[in-house]
């Protein structure tokens, strides 16, 4: 049974305007880590807030554990949420923050203490119990917020960009920790982020959203390797997929599949293009080559290649090289709908 399901869920903030969320159908699986990924303004947070009951849907249904919860208040939905700002209560100590939901439910004091101890030991924050939120670091606040979310043993976790307030180094370790943590407690989680690395690393499945609509749902490998449309293709991956329109079709291929002479020969069936390198970036482990196509159907189109630093030492700016893409790495999109179409013969 799906833990959370949305059916044709729509939210329109201002009458007559385009919805912030449009006809979203979503179904999470038991124990799954589902990531909502999209640029800012794509409706992912609104969708999450509707699931939490903090925002009222304009139309459509939300089901939690098979029951329509549209008319239930947030407190009746049995969920826990971690906010981007952590939303710790500033006038309460970490301990009182953690037991706040238990107190609100009227759970006895001894039981509250027991559950707070359990949550704190899972996250290693017992020594912070008597501190106020302003005396905690970003990482500690995040853990207290997580502890507050798990003490009630909710059926569903909602996380709204909980890592975005941490510095880059802490974020990487917190990401791994959070992922391990979710696996250990086994509660279904819906996680909102605009960071594709987070989404790919953490998600069991990724829901790519844009302008209030779901563009694609799939495992990280599927959304990356088999994008459903040009938006997904360009939103995921850095640098993004090369998108080249020609002869009534859009051809796409990832920069790491656009390979220099010497490698291209090993690809099996492939197409070759003349690539003028205009400038390059050396990033240590890899090189990013920026340039344009020379001649053929894609003449003058901008393309990017990403190659391991160990390859193509001879490539220098301003010269033209014969680069190649394996046929299996070429994706085709319909120029009108920008949706993926069946493989075709690549224009050369």
């Amino acid at each position: 049974m799906a833990i959370v399901e949305t059916r044709k869920l729509t939210k329109v903030f201002k009458r007559g305007n385009v919805g912030a969320v449009n006809n979203v159908d979503l179904e999470s699986r038991e124990g799954e880590f589902l990531v909502l990924l999209g640029p800012s303004g794509s409706g992912k947070t609104t969708l999450l807030r509707m699931i939490a009951g903090l925002e009222e849907p304009t139309s459509g249904d939300i089901l939690i554990g098979g029951r329509v919860v549209n008319d239930l208040t947030p407190r009746e939905r049995g969920i826990a949420m971690v906010f981007q700002s952590y939303a710790l209560y500033p006038h309460l100590t970490a301990f009182k923050n953690i037991v706040f939901p238990l107190k609100a439910q009227g759970i006895a004091k001894a039981e509250r203490q027991k559950r707070a101890d359990w949550a704190a030991s899972l996250l290693g924050i017992k020594h912070l119990f008597q501190r106020k939120p302003r005396e905690l670091s970003g990482g500690e606040r995040q853990r207290v917020a997580l502890a507050r979310a798990i003490v009630r043993e909710p059926s569903l976790f909602l996380l709204d960009e909980p890592l975005s307030n941490l510095d880059a180094k802490l974020r990487a370790s917190a990401r791994e920790e959070l992922e391990q943590f979710q696996k250990r407690i086994g509660t279904t989680a819906i996680y909102v982020t605009h960071d594709q690395v987070e989404a790919m690393a953490m998600g069991d499945r990724v829901v790519v959203m844009s302008q209030g609509s779901v563009r694609q749902i799939g495992t990280p490998a599927v959304v990356y390797d088999e994008p459903a449309d040009t938006f997904v293709a360009t939103f995921l991956g850095s640098p993004p997929m090369n998108i080249l329109p020609a002869n009534g079709v859009i051809v796409g291929f990832r920069p790491e599949h656009f390979l220099p002479p010497g490698v291209a020969e090993r690809l099996g069936e492939h197409v070759s293009y003349q690539f003028r390198v205009t400038h390059s970036e050396y990033l240590g482990a890899e090189r990013i080559l920026y340039g344009t196509m020379e001649g053929g159907a894609f003449n003058e189109r901008k393309v990017i290649s990403r190659i391991p630093a160990t390859h193509g030492a001879e490539i220098s700016d301003g010269n033209v090289y014969s680069f190649a893409v394996a046929n299996r790495d070429l994706k085709f999109f319909d120029p009108k709908t920008e949706k993926r179409t069946a493989a075709a013969r690549p224009p050369s």
Binding site: A52, G53, R75, A80, A87, P101, R152
Partner: peptide, 12 residues
């Protein structure tokens, strides 16, 4: 956010 959190945490 604080109010939202409180409502999710079980308060009206």
């Amino acid at each position: 956010d604080l109010e939202d959190a409180a409502m999710v945490d079980g308060l009206t």
